[in-house]
Design a binder for these strands. Sequence first.
DNA 1: ATCAAGATTACCT
DNA 2: GGTAATCTTGATA
Length: 203
Amino acid sequence: MNDILNSPKLDKNFYVRNVVKVAKDLLGKTFVRRIKGKTLAATIVEVEAYDADDEASHSFNGRSQRNNVMFEEGGLLYVYFIYGVHFCCNVVTGKADHGSAVLIRAIEPLNHFDFLAKNRFGTTKITEKGKINLTNGPAKLCQALQIMRADNGADLLGDKIYILDAPKLKKNQIIQTTRIGITKSKELPWRFYIKNNPFVSKR
DNA sequence: ATCAAGATTACCT
DNA sequence: GGTAATCTTGATA
């Protein structure tokens, strides 16, 4: 655990690359959220890439008030509100004005389970199944980590939300497939997840 | 001005 | 498996 938290932050160069490569490389890295004096840590286990010339991407029709952060240089957090109910968070990638990001779809918590459970269910008493349910979806993990509108545009090189390096996964531990919940560009194989990880949202 | 769709989730049958 | 929840955006009038 201490080894994990003592790893270096991913740097600017990591984020300013092709979005599909960044997506794949984010698997296994440690997502950190500092809030209320706590340092919440979780392993990234499922992601999706959204690129500029990708019909399913929020950036496809150009810059707008909502997707503005996606067009910044890589290394920021893009948070959006969806279905009038949920927040989802993305890691902005690529050069300035490009418009690409990686949706974080699922994480595996490493600490502070009571705090996450309180945020999700209003109680610290949870079953084994409830534990899986803490962060096995893009809106669930935002609720658990208290990521919301105010966090849109957060600097991932700052000290509130950031990602730590971790050993690169082997090729055979990564599954590549099509994305979930979209109607356009469904055929692009831009979803990645860690094989056999119980926190992955859907097989 | 009105309307439909949306990178989801929880709860129902 | 179906659908309500309920805000924001972009299209059409």
